[in-house]
Design a protein around this nucleic acid. Structure first.
Length: 190
DNA sequence: CACACGATGCGCT
DNA sequence: GCGCATCGTGTGG
């Protein structure tokens, strides 16, 4: 009888995040987001995402000239957390090659209580602006592992929600029937 | 400097 | 369906 070792970590490599943002968003579905807080590891399966690049609804819509959006132009695999509505945080994964803006907003997790919706997801994981800039390919407290494969028939493609511009782009993806899909957004199919 | 508003969630109607 | 909390950020004067 040997020592009980934890399962090996299969952290997603930087190359995972390099492709087109919509492709990365699709690949992130089913992957397992991990967060270490106070010696405890919280994890959940990614079941809802949205892609943002340089479209009109993106924080990078007007180019690389604000302090906040610099990070969207940074290396793929970087964490982008922003604060909104005076009380909520949203967690994104930076995509695209360095110099081009792109990010995937993580909107819902299965396997955690109250992680349906981007702000609830952050609250469930204790993610705040302090986490902005972390490197998912190296950071000891925040990383993503591959999950079981997700079939195309499980994926619903819809319009992004909570935005006023570029509302017609079908850049929101979620897993059909998942409890972690954000509440008021289960509809809006198309 | 002032101001408008948001990649939300909740509670009430 | 609707109003609202609550404040950082971006934009314009």
């Amino acid at each position: 009888m040997g020592i009980d070792l934890p399962p090996p970590i299969e952290r997603l490599p930087a190359s995972f995040y390099v492709g087109g943002t919509l492709d990365v968003a699709r690949r992130l579905l089913g992957c397992i987001l991990h967060r270490e807080v106070g010696g405890e590891i919280r994890r959940g399966r990614i079941v809802e995402v949205e892609a943002y690049t340089d479209d009109e609804a993106s924080h990078a819509a007007t180019g690389r000239h604000t302090k906040r959006n610099q990070i969207m132009f940074g290396p793929p695999g970087t964490v982008y957390v922003y604060f909104t509505y005076g009380m909520h945080h949203c967690l994104n994964v930076v995509t695209e090659p360095e110099g081009r803006p792109g990010a995937v907003l993580l909107r819902g997790l299965d396997g955690l209580e109250r992680a349906a919706g981007p702000a609830l997801l952050c609250r469930a994981l204790g993610v705040t602006r302090q986490d902005n800039g972390r490197d998912l390919t190296r950071d000891p407290q925040l990383w993503i592992e591959p999950g079981s494969p997700v079939g195309e028939e499980e994926v619903v493609v819809t319009r992004r929600v909570g935005i006023r511009k570029a509302v017609d782009l079908p850049w929101r993806l979620y897993l059909r029937g998942s409890p972690g899909v954000s509440r008021r957004d289960r509809r809006a199919e198309g």
